[in-house]
């Protein structure tokens, strides 16, 4: 069975002073993959500036807007429709031999293959004193360890949408122990990488029919590479595996590779941005 999702993304930017020139780049288009099939995309803005579709440095689809002429406010609206196959996240061949898995991740070829997602970044740097907060149990499979890590992270950090912002680093998070999906995901990735497991930050949409934490904006979760299995999605914020309700846009080393909107705006004075996301679904026969 499949679900048809329809996603509406809105952003509105207002500026105190006239903007002479601006460029925006949106990273909000759902990825096309085995479980996500694209139907339609509709992107408009209030200035009728042309939208250009492009591919960013990490290979994901972006939309760029570069209005001509001065303005003080601009609103964007994107509507996506896609079909998502129903996923059972547990439907995979588990690791056969625990020891083999841990040997695998020590191999040079494995490290070279996954170099990008084994790196520590500014957002995934764990302070020395906290490195032992979570350790892997080599008697358990990598997958079980990752589930345990997800559970640990979920319980260690309390969801609070006011406590952090997009610049929050782990050193601060581990002090206040409150945060949002992005913080949960960074912490999970950091511990996975520390233990030699490639992990990547995923940004996407969450269909909220089932009372999950997330919010009415974008959602974030992690994907970790389990040896002999492949990439598996962990929604750490909700302590579940990513499934049918998780609509992926892009992945990267951390938030900075996946921020939904990047802009260069030549203006003075204050500005304000308001985002909103609505995801709805209907069954497909």
């Amino acid at each position: 069975m499949s679900l048809e999702y329809s996603i509406t993304y809105k952003a509105e930017n207002t500026y105190e002073e006239s903007v002479r020139e601006a460029y925006w780049q949106f990273l909000i288009i759902p990825e096309e993959n085995d479980s996500q099939q694209f139907i339609s995309i509709d992107f408009t803005n209030s200035l009728d500036a042309t939208s250009e579709f492009s591919i960013n440095g990490y290979g994901f689809k972006t939309i760029r807007v570069h209005p001509k002429g001065e303005f003080k406010s601009i609103a964007f609206e994107a509507n996506f429709k896609l079909i998502k196959k129903e996923i059972n996240p547990f439907d995979f061949e588990p690791e056969g031999d625990v020891q083999k898995s841990f040997e695998k991740i020590q191999e040079l070829d494995f490290k070279v293959d996954h170099d990008t997602f084994l790196k520590t970044t500014d957002y995934t740097l764990i302070p020395e004193k906290s490195k032992n907060l979570f350790t892997f149990d080599t008697n358990q499979s990598v997958f079980e360890n990752l589930r345990a890590l997800s559970s640990f992270t979920h319980h260690y950090i309390k969801f609070n949408s006011e406590a952090t912002d997009v610049y929050t680093k782990l050193s601060e998070l581990l002090n206040i122990r409150q945060g949002v999906c992005q913080d949960f995901t960074h912490l999970f990735c950091a511990f996975a990488r520390l233990n030699g497991i490639p992990a990547r930050y995923v940004s996407g949409y969450l269909h909220q029919g089932n009372g999950y934490f997330g919010d009415s904006q974008m959602h974030a979760w992690a994907e970790a590479y389990v040896p002999f299995v492949g990439w598996i999605g962990f929604d750490v914020t909700n302590n579940i595996l990513a499934g049918t309700d998780h609509i992926k846009i892009a992945h990267g080393k951390d938030y900075s590779n996946c921020s939904p909107l990047r802009g260069v705006v030549f203006s003075t004075g204050k500005n304000e941005t308001v985002h909103s996301v609505v995801v709805s679904s209907q069954d497909q026969q």
Binding site: Y23, Q25, S54, I55, N56, G57, T62, R64, H66, R262, V264
Partner: peptide, 18 residues
Amino acid sequence: DPLEFKPDSALGVPGLFA
């Protein structure tokens, strides 16, 4: 390219890397 690298760079060209 401020859209790909350092976002506050005023020296570059937005979209150049793409």
